[in-house]
Design a protein around this nucleic acid. Structure first.
Length: 915
RNA sequence: AGGCGCGUAGCUCAGCUGGUUAGAGCGCUACCUUGACACGGUAGAGGUCUGGGGUUCGAGUCCCCACGUGCCUACCA
């Protein structure tokens, strides 16, 4: 199987094929490790995308990072489980299907609950797999055999189980409180689902007549229509202005209701008029005040945000129409005292944007403090670590100021609350539908119509996805997860809740098979994951947030079609520096496709030479007893460039491993990029070309073997970032009989200290410096590129001369010069010369030199170097510096100053020639 | 209101616990169709690190202030 690879890199031709192959071959299937076997395990949960979702750039960033980390672990020999699944996404999915019904002219309520839910399942069967398809295209190395859906029966059972247990422990309660109500979605939503928006509005001041006095008390409000539900007026106890009104009553305009004037902390003298209307049914603070003073609650706004019968003449009006009418009527009747400009923080439903109405209603809540306490402790003790670390504080601040969590939703799509209501009023919470009421024995039981907040079930996923409440082997092996990678936007929604619920249900007594109490060890073992990596937001090239309304949303699949998945992944990785949002620019991706093309062509060069050497026996060059992880096995460092590249590869392998361990995807990408292009291609391949010439068979075999070994190892190094091109080329290298089914199952390169050769690196640096200097001279003197010129070199030290002589071929080839002549003294006053601290080099070339330009250039250089020299000398003359600075810093500066002395001396004498 | 972050080359960003020559990619300029690659090669121009003060032998890096900018949290009617 010896196919020629095409001349240019065509990602679309190879990527789909590998994506399919990996899935078909089940390469990422992870068998459950038998109990007791001490294997290194890496496990991670994919933040489940919504079933309704389509892949966006945020997903792609998220998944690229997860895939890099997972592949890296897998290649290092970990049992690497990356667990995929999708989320039923209550509101979002319900809205989707409602919209579909709307187009058919139908309404959800006409259809009825059962039919509607069946309809959603149908929708899911039809369109629910889209995002998984897209994930395959990204190359996400998840274990598809374990894929879950949050509404699966086993997961639903776990959700019921969790609910029943929390209820049994008194951590779930039902009650009537003010909640955030979305009149469009007709459901309660949690505090987190309300988005605040600052808006210019008015603070209206309304005069309420005080009964029995010729006086008014003026209250301020931003929502005048709620006055219809007023039951009191509050003033502050300290407020002398209203002292004489205490105990009196005010008369509510428009409705003529009598309102007691009470004293309460609710009223703050500094704000508004100091007097505040109290509407317990429509404001959370007023609700609390109402409890304190035993006030009635009068609801005037219904679930559609329309006024109800209690609003008297305003009944039936929408809240805004009512506001307008109320204001007009107040104005007409002389009760409107004024209106001030005011910036109000308006709450909107994050799903549909409708202004949220604080509404009195009966809901289910989680008593959160006991859960939060553990969630605080595990982070304070660093059982769970955050990257970047500042999220730790953000998390703790939020967790320390947490409120009870409203978990019921008035939706049809989701996990139905496992509570049954009896005619007698008794509520039974149970795992399965009870046959009869345990209190009255009645059999007319109805299940609570509400469903649970989707995040309730998502919060349980770290263990329910592994089989909880059963004591499964998976749970034992893969919990806690090693890592979670996600965006900061769901830090509270999801990350925080997983930690709370994990630390509750995976600690005694809920942890399967556990005994005893919750000590430090049990708490540490209960966390859902040991590390959390929070990634940035992907913005467009102009740093704008991507949004459908702005129309600047980039479709990752479109980008992939244009540049390839590898280039797109590499772009995202290279731009993932911690704490900074990613301004995604296609130009950058274009650049990384060029990188892929470079790799492709380097491979072609290698294949060409291998085939020239030993036709049809490509693989034999790669036959090594073992392709271990350390260094490059089988690399025979025969020459300076061999020793150098081998040393460099090992250094880079160390750095890439370090970067990945620290989630520095950007560093890892750049190290590999610079190494592959800037060292392997630009220098190593150029340097070995003479050895590959047909007349030097032995040399060629060594050189080819080295190149192949180096290339193979580099593919392994690059694989987590660019999985497709690396697997394609790796398979091509092994000509049909690869040692593993994929390079993704081969060993990840690690540094081998024996292959580090600092002497070679230093020598190579000198040689590179010489070659670059020569090229530079050629360009400046405008030497015809085709012309090989004679040169003269003065080396300060004999070993430098030896080095140059030994690598003469490299110099003549890459510098395009003739063999050098060596001078015995500095070339200070000769034209067409460059000086460095180690050597002088001169082109022997007759050309018209622009003397004034040359003089200017020398002056500029001298100026720069002398100021650096002066600086250095001043430092060295400073006693404080010598005393306090570390020895290596001083030594470095000393040698730098010596170099500068030599070079500036040479430039000075050179300048004499031009004056 | 409280909290967090950012401001480095034309653009997008690196620069770790302060160490003296501030880097990269893209873009730009000149030259080169050299048998792996024009998605290429070679060379080059370009920065008083937002401003001001301070700590230090030494500050892009630490502290304070100002300006600009982004985000999160909060029940002030």
């Amino acid at each position: 199987m010896h196919q020629e690879i095409p001349k240019s890199y065509q990602p679309d031709a190879i990527e789909a094929r590998w994506a399919e192959y990996w899935v078909k071959e089940k390469l990422f299937f992870v068998p459950t490790p038998p109990p007791g076997e001490a294997e290194r395990i890496f496990s991670m949960l994919l933040p489940p995308p919504n079933v309704t979702g389509r892949l966006h750039m945020g997903h792609m960033l998220n998944q690229t990072q997860m895939d890099i980390i997972t592949r890296w672990h897998r290649m290092r020999g970990f049992v690497a489980l990356w667990l995929p699944g999708t989320d039923h996404a209550g509101i979002a999915t319900q809205m989707m299907v409602e919209r579909q019904l709307e187009q058919e002219g139908k309404k959800r309520r006409e259809l009825g609950r059962d039919k509607f839910v069946e309809r959603v399942w149908e929708w899911k069967r039809h369109f629910g797999g889209a995002i998984q398809e897209q994930m395959r295209r990204l190359g996400a190395s998840v274990d598809w055999s374990r894929e879950y859906f949050t509404m699966d029966e086993n997961l639903s059972r776990a959700v019921r189980e969790a609910f029943v247990r929390l209820y049994g422990e008194g951590l779930i309660y039902r009650g009537e409180y003010i909640v955030n109500w979305c009149p469009r979605c007709e459901t309660a939503i949690s505090d987190l689902e309300v988005k605040r928006e600052e808006l210019a509005g008015k603070l209206w001041e309304i005069r309420y007549p005080v009964i029995g006095m010729d006086e008014f008390i003026t209250v301020a409000t931003t929502r005048p229509e709620t006055m219809l539900g007023d039951v009191a007026v509050a003033v502050n106890e300290r407020d002398e202005r209203y002292r004489h009104l205490r105990g009196r009553k005010a008369l509510l305009p428009l409705l003529n209701r009598e309102l007691p004037i009470i004293t309460d902390e609710l009223a703050q003298p500094e704000f508004g008029t100091g007097a505040v209307k109290v509407t317990p049914a429509h404001d959370a603070n007023d609700f609390e005040a109402g409890l304190r003073h035993n006030l009635p609650r009068i609801e005037v706004i219904d679930q559609h945000a329309s006024m109800n019968q209690n609003a008297g003449p305003y009944a039936g009006l929408d809240r805004y129409a009512a506001r307008k009418r109320v204001l007009e009527d107040l104005q007409r009747q002389g009760f409107l005292a004024g209106a001030k400009d005011y910036v109000l923080a308006l709450g909107r439903c994050q799903r549909c944007g409708t202004v949220v109405e604080p509404r009195l209603s009966t809901q289910w809540f989680v008593k959160i403090q006991p859960l939060a306490n553990r969630a605080i402790e595990v982070v304070e003790r660093d059982y769970v670590r955050f990257t970047p670390p500042n999220y730790r504080l953000i998390y703790l601040n939020w967790m320390r100021d947490i409120h009870d969590w409203c978990i019921s939703r008035q939706l049809w799509w989701g996990h139905r609350i496992p509570a049954w209501h009896c005619e007698c009023g008794e509520i039974t919470v149970a795992r399965e539908a009870p046959k009869e009421c345990p209190k009255c024995g009645g059999s007319k039981l109805e299940q609570d119509p509400d469903v649970l907040d989707t995040w309730f079930s998502s919060g349980l996923l770290p263990f329910t996805s592994l089989g909880w409440p059963d004591a499964t082997c998976d749970l034992r092996a893969f919990y806690p997860g090693s890592l979670l990678i996600t965006g900061f936007d769901i830090l509270f929604f999801w990350v925080a809740r997983m930690i709370m619920l994990g630390c509750w249900f995976m600690a005694p007594p809920h942890r399967p098979g556990s005994t005893g109490s919750v000590d430090g060890k049990a708490l540490e073992d209960s966390i859902p994951f040991r590390e959390v990596y929070i990634h940035a937001l992907v913005r467009d090239a102009e740093r704008q947030k991507m949004s459908k309304t702005k129309g600047n949303v980039l479709d990752p699949i479109a980008v992939i079609r244009k540049y390839g998945t590898d280039a797109t992944r590499f772009t995202l990785a290279a731009m993932s520096s911690p704490g900074t949002d990613i301004a995604f620019s296609e130009k950058r991706t274009d650049g990384y496709r060029a990188f892929a093309n470079k790799i492709w062509n380097a491979a072609r060069f290698m294949f060409l030479n291998i085939d020239r050497l030993e036709p049809d026996s490509r693989a034999t060059l790669l036959e090594q007893p073992s392709r271990g992880a350390a260094g490059i096995p089988g690399f025979r460092a025969a020459t300076l460039e061999d020793r150098w590249i081998l040393s460099r590869f090992n250094g880079i392998a160390r750095q890439v491993n370090q970067s990945l361990a620290a989630y520095r995807f950007d560093e890892a990408a750049n190290f590999i990029y610079d190494f592959f292009w800037g060292e392997l291609c630009d220098w190593y391949i150029e340097l070995i070309k003479p050895r590959l010439a047909p007349d030097s068979k032995d040399d060629a075999r060594t050189a080819c073997g080295n190149l192949a070994a180096l290339f193979e190892a580099s593919l392994r190094l690059l694989h987590p970032l660019m999985p497709f091109i690396t697997d394609e080329l790796w398979h091509a290298m092994h000509a049909g009989s690869p040692p593993q089914k994929s390079v993704g199952l081969a060993a990840y390169p690690q540094m081998d200290e024996h292959q580090i050769d600092t002497a070679a690196e230093t020598q190579m640096a000198i040689l590179q410096d010489l070659i670059v200097t020569v090229r530079n001279l050629r360009a400046e003197l405008k030497v015809d590129p085709k012309r090989r010129v004679p040169i003269e070199i003065f080396a300060h030290m004999p070993e430098t001369r030896t080095l140059i002589e030994a690598n003469c071929v490299a110099l003549t080839l890459l510098g395009n010069v003739e063999e050098p002549r060596f001078a015995n003294a500095s070339l200070g006053k000769v034209s067409a010369t460059r000086h460095t601290a180690r050597f002088d080099v001169r082109l022997i070339y007759e050309s018209q030199i622009d003397r004034s330009a040359e003089r200017q250039k020398l002056h500029k250089e001298l100026e720069k170097l002398s100021s650096e020299l002066a600086n250095g000398e001043r430092q060295l003359g400073n006693e404080q510096f010598i005393e306090k600075a570390p020895a290596d810093v001083i030594a470095k500066l000393r040698s730098r100053v010596e170099e500068l002395k030599v070079v500036t001396g040479k430039i000075r004498s050179k300048l004499e020639e031009f004056t």
